[in-house]
Nucleic acid binder design. Structure first.
Lengths: 243, 243
DNA sequence: CGAAGAATTGAGACGGCTCAACCAAAGTGG
DNA sequence: CCACTTTGGTTGAGCCGTCTCAATTCTTCG
């Protein structure tokens, strides 16, 4: 669904998205070709194999990138939150499904027009490269989790990544004190993200709760009373890239 | 160890590496600042946490990118073959270990000098972006393997990725007929790549051999008599990105 | 209040891991 | 040239963590 445009100057992700380094000229062009689109919770943004006619930035809401095998096994490969970029300049087709898990607002560009900007604006090209390198680092970091970590470590690391991501989105320090998290994902989606089943994921939440490492006022809310203590559950936790 | 330079015009990876799209001017600059370095089998190229003083392209040999957790668990996140790029412009430290698994020849640039070229040459910047996007796709594809595939599927997919990679390096068609592979990795390294143990990996090789899907004249050689048949072992195998 | 979906919990099965023995190939030194 | 060692790979037996299947509870929303 089409939405009214918001001026880039007022955009909540102006300084974190692909347009972050755009100068006044770049921004004028981007502003002229962008359109806002809203995708309802559960809606598809692109399906694996589909053409990528547009690229976009997530302005609000949460989306997932995943692949489903023929027999139904499903693995999420990325969580898309505000300021994240969707699409691949220079590539016509998506090899993953991208779906809204909450109502999502996208700032969208037609792919050819966006590719032209990438070619003409070093600022935008540079920003896109930096974001892609960040994504790559996040993906590789996640590979360590998928390949080698226990269910407990996966859940703990997932929660910590949300803590960090929320802190960085709000430009805050990472405090040790109680942090309240809103989970953007269902247990099923979390399981797909972590390479586990729903049941195992749920059991790990329960175990962490029993041991006082987290509290769960509701299924979608998690309180971490002591972030440092939760961090101890994850070997290797160097802080890691912000996923 | 320093080696004599090879002219870019004679370089075996000239048309596949980060310099592939470089024009004559770019190439002159690259040629003037590059140096060739050889790293012996088993040697470290960079360690996790170390400064990235240089970036480089793999000219010959094979290297791995991996992380080792404090308790010794290890996950490989990338296999580096000729034409692959090592390093991250704009980031000073590596978050993974990069090690030579055979004697490796690198075409190396000091990071600041290379970053300058990326800023001044749209061709190089564009090529770097494309390569990074390819790497990202490969990393995400691998996540599906690590998160959801069985040991048997992992080994089959690994072998198929080598078949494709060899074919693409030599610009050949992917044939169904017998393909002879040289494994660049030990069983241990393969296990680390696939998120398995040595023993499980070895058992899967044995099982595939028993069933006639592969032959193993020696530990480092694998013959795939029928690529299509091996492909049937991997659900989802859409061909996938070339890892 | 009832229905449907989401999450939790339990019991048992199973795939991959651990520990251990064994084997083959490649050095190494007397 | 032959013991001896070392390194890398294979195989076996049993264990354990996660999955599967199933029942139950909790939420949400007509």
């Amino acid at each position: 669904m089409r939405l009214a445009k918001v001026a880039c100057a007022d955009c909540p992700i102006r300084h974190r998205a692909v347009c972050a380094e755009a100068d006044a000229d770049d921004l004028a062009v981007l502003e002229s070709i962008k359109s806002y689109v809203s995708v309802p919770k559960g809606g598809s943004i692109v399906a694996a194999g589909d053409a990528f006619d547009h690229v976009s930035s997530v302005v609000a809401g949460c989306a997932t990138m995943s692949r489903t095998l023929e027999d139904g096994r499903r693995q999420m490969v990325g969580l898309l939150l505000p300021s994240d970029f969707i699409g691949r300049p220079g590539r016509a087709r998506s090899s993953f499904d991208i779906e809204a898990v909450s109502d999502v607002t996208l700032c969208r560009f037609e792919r050819p027009a966006f590719e032209k900007i990438v070619r003409s604006s070093p600022n935008v090209a540079q920003r896109l490269l930096t974001m892609t390198l960040d994504e790559l680092e996040i993906a590789r970091d996640w590979s360590v989790l998928l390949g080698r970590m226990t269910a407990r470590e996966r859940v703990a690391k997932f929660l910590l990544s949300l803590v960090r991501r929320e802190a960085s989105a709000e430009g805050q320090e990472i405090t040790d004190g109680p942090v309240v998290l809103h989970l953007p994902l269902s247990r099923e989606a979390i399981a797909d993200y972590l390479g586990l089943t729903i049941e195992t994921t749920s059991r790990q939440f329960s175990a962490l709760r029993r041991e006082g490492l987290i509290e769960t006022p509701s299924a979608r809310q998690v309180v971490v009373p002591d972030v440092a203590q939760l961090t101890l559950e994850v070997l290797d936790d160097d802080g890691g890239p912000i996923a």
